[in-house]
Simulated scan of single mutants.
Amino acid sequence: MKEITPKEVENLLNENKSLNLIDVREAEEVREGKVPTAVNIPLGLLEFRMSELDKKKEYILVCRSGGRSGRAVQFLESYGFNVINMTGGMLSWEGQTV
């Protein structure tokens, strides 16, 4: 499983890199703040919303602590998606939130 730290994600965003971020937390968790540009697809809905994703793109998955996003990475990898887990999740995120 490929991994990236929250600081690396923050640095890429600060460099205006175009990132495809998917936040797999529940909607009520996301309302407390999410990484800018992240799209919320709760883990339980991921299987049903895979058609919205492009296998040619790379996605960084985010959750509260890195556990759910890790499961999401394993799931999407099994379907051929190029995905990376943000280790530590939002608990380790020090950057801006929206």
Rank of each mutant, 00 (worst) to 15 (best):
K2W: 11
K2F: 12
K2H: 07
E3S: 14
I4G: 12
I4M: 14
T5C: 15
T5I: 09
P6S: 10
K7L: 14
V9T: 15
E10N: 07
L12V: 05
N14L: 15
E15L: 13
N16M: 13
N16L: 11
N16D: 15
K17A: 11
K17Q: 14
N20P: 07
L21E: 11
I22D: 09
V24E: 06
V24R: 05
V24C: 06
R25G: 06
R25W: 08
A27K: 14
E28W: 08
E28Q: 08
E29K: 01
R31Y: 10
G33I: 07
K34C: 01
K34M: 06
K34F: 05
V35T: 04
V35R: 03
V35L: 14
P36M: 13
T37V: 01
T37I: 02
T37L: 08
A38R: 04
A38H: 06
V39N: 10
V39K: 14
V39S: 03
N40R: 10
I41F: 05
I41N: 03
P42M: 05
P42F: 04
P42W: 02
P42E: 00
P42T: 06
G44I: 10
G44E: 02
G44S: 08
G44M: 11
L45S: 10
L45Q: 15
L46S: 04
L46P: 12
E47H: 04
R49G: 00
M50G: 00
M50E: 08
S51V: 02
E52W: 00
D54C: 09
D54M: 06
K55I: 03
K55A: 11
K55V: 02
K56L: 10
K57N: 10
K57M: 12
E58H: 11
Y59D: 11
Y59R: 09
Y59N: 10
I60C: 07
L61S: 08
L61R: 01
V62Q: 13
V62K: 04
C63A: 07
C63S: 15
R64D: 05
R64A: 12
R64W: 03
S65H: 06
G66M: 06
G67L: 13
G67S: 14
R68S: 09
R68L: 06
R68I: 05
R68N: 13
S69K: 03
S69C: 06
S69A: 09
S69F: 07
S69W: 01
G70I: 02
G70H: 02
G70V: 00
R71K: 10
R71D: 05
R71W: 08
A72H: 04
A72F: 00
V73R: 03
F75K: 05
F75S: 08
F75E: 02
F75T: 01
L76M: 04
E77I: 02
Y79Q: 13
Y79S: 04
G80D: 06
F81K: 02
F81C: 05
I84K: 03
I84P: 00
N85Q: 01
T87D: 04
T87R: 13
G88W: 04
G88T: 03
G88L: 07
G89C: 07
G89D: 01
G89V: 00
M90H: 02
M90A: 00
L91Q: 13
L91N: 09
L91S: 01
L91D: 01
L91T: 07
W93H: 01
E94T: 13
G95W: 03
Q96I: 02
T97A: 00
